[in-house]
Structure formats: structure tokens, C-alpha cells
Design a protein around this nucleic acid. Structure first.
Lengths: 123, 123
DNA sequence: ATTATTGTATTAAGTACTTAGTACAATAAT
DNA sequence: ATTATTGTACTAAGTACTTAATACAATAAT
């Protein structure tokens, strides 16, 4: 489980992103139980308070829910997860194209750059 | 001149990114004089200290240089700017493909998603 | 019943970032 | 010569983030 955290951004927000990704990619399976706050915190080499903050904020989106003392669980709603996944993908793409545009690369140009990159990689 | 700054990340680092982009995209032309620290700070609605921090850090890369009291200037070295531009683009692409991969989208899959997005946009 | 584990809350301390305000030295402009 | 503008430096204050250390209530496990 990779938790590479950078120092140029609040840790809790990076945790939110990465947990969301683990859920959307299936690393954290629907309906399964999450490790405890303390375990997750240790895994990520982070203070339990920080992990708690990230998890409680994540719950607002509905991808997680808490059973008071038995722990936290991933939603069983596979459709919700699928939607979240596609929203994340769309956001990534939009943000990416936006940045490329600001550098002076139009959408089709950006597309062709990636295409040729992948062609090169195949060789 | 758009300076949209978000609160989820240090301002000075966002300033660095955006100034770098303005240089690479030609908004700040090679050899031209930058507005003063105080002007830029006012434009970006930021404290002069913060702008100063960003600018002095940017100089380390060589895209800017200072003439003690006449101001700051963009490098005349167009080749250096071109290199910086392509490095930024490469970094953006790598980061993007990485994130898409973590979501479960392979490179070719990501490419086809963007392709169809652009096709849709044309209609 | 007792114990361990769960999420949660609180307080205190340290660090980084940002701002406001002020000041200084060098030099371009007058 | 004088003035204005340049980058730069400094201190003080406030805020947000992170950590450490504890503690508590609820409940699963024993």
C-alpha cells in the first residue's frame, strides 16, 4: 500500500484523494471493512488525528460510512463508486487539458503529443 | 491577467507555477521587463513578501534575472524557455497518465477516452 | 462481567505560510 | 543634487496544519 505524501500540500487532503482513488480502483472493495483509524494512520506514517480528519471528511461524500464501534466500511453501492470514478477521471482530464492549453497546446495538439509518446514507447 | 489562487496549497508555489507558465506561453516575452514586485503583488492580490518569495525562487531556474534596481527581466535565451515549456508539458502528461492509471485506466484507454471526448465536442 | 477495539474529542506545542508595516541600499529619473 | 523606484530584509501577528498525549463512550470479543 503506497502512501507517498508530499510536503507541498496539506496531508489530510492528499489522504482524501488517495483513499478515494483506492475505493474507485477497487483496492478497497465495496462493502469491505477499512482498517482502523489507528492502523491506517500508522500505515501512512501520519498522526491518527490527521487520518481521522481525512476519513470524516470523506464520509460526507457517501463513499464511506461508520458503524459506531465496529469500524468504517466502504459503501456497497457499486453504482455510486462507478460514478465517483468517472467524475474523478473527468476532473483529471479537464484539469490536464486546461494546463496544457495554458502552456499553448490545444486539445488536438495535446492529443497528438500523447499519441506519438505512446507510439514511441511501443518501440 | 488571471491570478486565480486556491487556498488548498501555498500561494507562493502557485505563483511560481503560474509565472513559469506565463513565461513559457509567451505572455511574458523573452527579454522583457517584469512589473515590479509591488505591482505584481497588487495584481495578484497578494502580499509583496509572498510575491518576492516566488520570484526569488524562480530565479534559481534561470528563467528570470535581476538587475539590482532597474527590475527583473525574462531571459533572452529562447531555447531555455522552449526547453522549460517542453519539460512542463512532459511533467503534466506523466502526472496525468499516472493518476489515470491509479484510477484503473491504462494509457491507450485514457487516450481513447480523450479522443471520444474531443469527437463529442465537435458535434 | 471483563477486556479490547472502535470512532471521537480535547489540549498543548511546534511549524509553515501569509500579511502588515517598516526600513534600507542601489540606481534610474528628474 | 534630489527624488522616486528598484529589490531586499526584518519583525510581529494571525492562521492553518500536524503531531503528541490523553481520554471517553459504545460495543464487539472474550
Amino acid at each position: 500500500m503506497s502512501w507517498d505524501l508530499k510536503t507541498d500540500r496539506p496531508i489530510y487532503s492528499q489522504l482524501i484523494e488517495q483513499i478515494e482513488i483506492k475505493i474507485c480502483s477497487g483496492i478497497f472493495a465495496p462493502g469491505s471493512k477499512l482498517p482502523s483509524v489507528r492502523e491506517l494512520a500508522q500505515e501512512a506514517a501520519v498522526n491518527p488525528n490527521t487520518m481521522q480528519k481525512a476519513l470524516s471528511m470523506l464520509e460526507e461524500d457517501g463513499l464511506l460510512y461508520t458503524n459506531r464501534t465496529s469500524g468504517r466500511f466502504i459503501t456497497e453501492d457499486a453504482k455510486m463508486i462507478e460514478q465517483a470514478k468517472h467524475k474523478l477521471a473527468q476532473d483529471q482530464i479537464s484539469e490536464f487539458l486546461e494546463k496544457m492549453k495554458s502552456l499553448g497546446f490545444g486539445k488536438t495538439e495535446t492529443l497528438s503529443i500523447i499519441s506519438t509518446m505512446l507510439e514511441e514507447a511501443k518501440k
